[in-house]
């Protein structure tokens, strides 16, 4: 696709602009910002990726992945209700999941050790992990908040912090991973996954595209479950001190 054809696609930006104006939806400004930002950001990413692919140097791949993890950490921290000191826990979680998935993929030679594969798969894994992190944190903090009395009761009867928070932890892990699992049950029937569509459009064999998409789907199952569990087990100890007392003040604090 050339820049000329791309400029024609701006029609798809114009339509919502006109509609917004006609129906006084007040969405013009945000639509414009969204369009401009996606053009700039994606083109920038495109050129950076081209540079990384051409250079064929591992260091750039690692830097690129690190950048994604930092961005994901920043985003998850900003969007999710929080627990004190969550930033580095998010970071550690994302790093572990990236290392785990790439180790399996590269170690078993499922995907070749090439920049295209490593970076695009990492992008999907880290992006998914970020969404899961936000889902988990929002649910977990809400569960802990509404069940403070139960936590206190279990502690008062001689329970440990882990026992006192167990139900909330499990509820939040389940609730945050269920959407990933559920959406995979209907995939292909209702919607074609974005990556597969992209590949098919680019001329890949549909069956090849499906096989690759399956790999990604399975990867995302691992990502979802490990993100929630890791984040859960890393973050709940912050809510207690060494005298096994519940620290309400460490819950949902806004980090500046």
């Amino acid at each position: 696709m050339s820049y000329v054809t791309l400029s024609l696609t701006l029609i798809f930006v114009l339509i919502p602009l006109v509609l917004s104006k006609t129906f006084k939806l007040g969405l013009e400004k945000d639509t414009l910002i969204a369009a401009v930002r996606s053009i700039i950001q994606l083109l920038a990413v495109g050129y950076v990726l081209q540079f990384v692919f051409d250079s064929k140097q591992m260091i750039y791949i690692v830097l690129m992945v690190l950048l994604m993890i930092v961005a994901a950490t920043h985003n998850a921290r900003k969007k999710g209700t929080s627990i004190k000191g969550i930033t580095w826990k998010l970071f550690v979680t994302f790093v572990c999941i990236e290392v785990l998935t790439q180790a399996i993929l590269l170690g078993l030679r499922i995907t070749p050790p090439e920049a295209q594969y490593i970076i695009s798969i990492s992008g999907m894994v880290i992006g998914n992990s970020m969404v899961l992190g936000i889902l988990f944190l929002n649910r977990f903090t809400a569960e802990v908040e509404t069940n403070q009395k139960q936590t206190e009761l279990i502690l008062s009867l001689g329970g440990t912090p882990k026992q006192a928070i167990h139900t909330q932890l499990i509820t939040a892990i389940k609730a945050s991973t269920i959407p990933t699992i559920e959406s995979q049950k209907t995939i292909g029937l209702v919607q074609l996954p974005g990556m597969m569509s992209g590949q098919i459009i680019a001329g890949a064999d549909p069956v090849q595209a499906v096989l690759f998409q399956l790999l990604i789907l399975f990867l995302l199952l691992t990502t979802a479950v490990t993100t929630s569990i890791m984040l859960g087990y890393l973050s709940y100890p912050t809510l207690f001190n060494e005298r096994m007392q519940f620290l309400k003040e460490n819950l949902a604090v806004e980090e500046s």
């Binding site: 139960q150 009761l153 009867l157 001689g158 329970g159 096994m244």
Partner: peptide, 20 residues
């Protein structure tokens, strides 16, 4: 130990909280 202390000194909390 916190758990030992809490078994030694039992408390019936004001709210009589129940677990589900």
């Amino acid at each position: 130990e916190p758990t030992e202390l809490r078994r030694l000194v039992g408390i019936a909390l004001q709210e009589a909280t129940m677990l589900s």
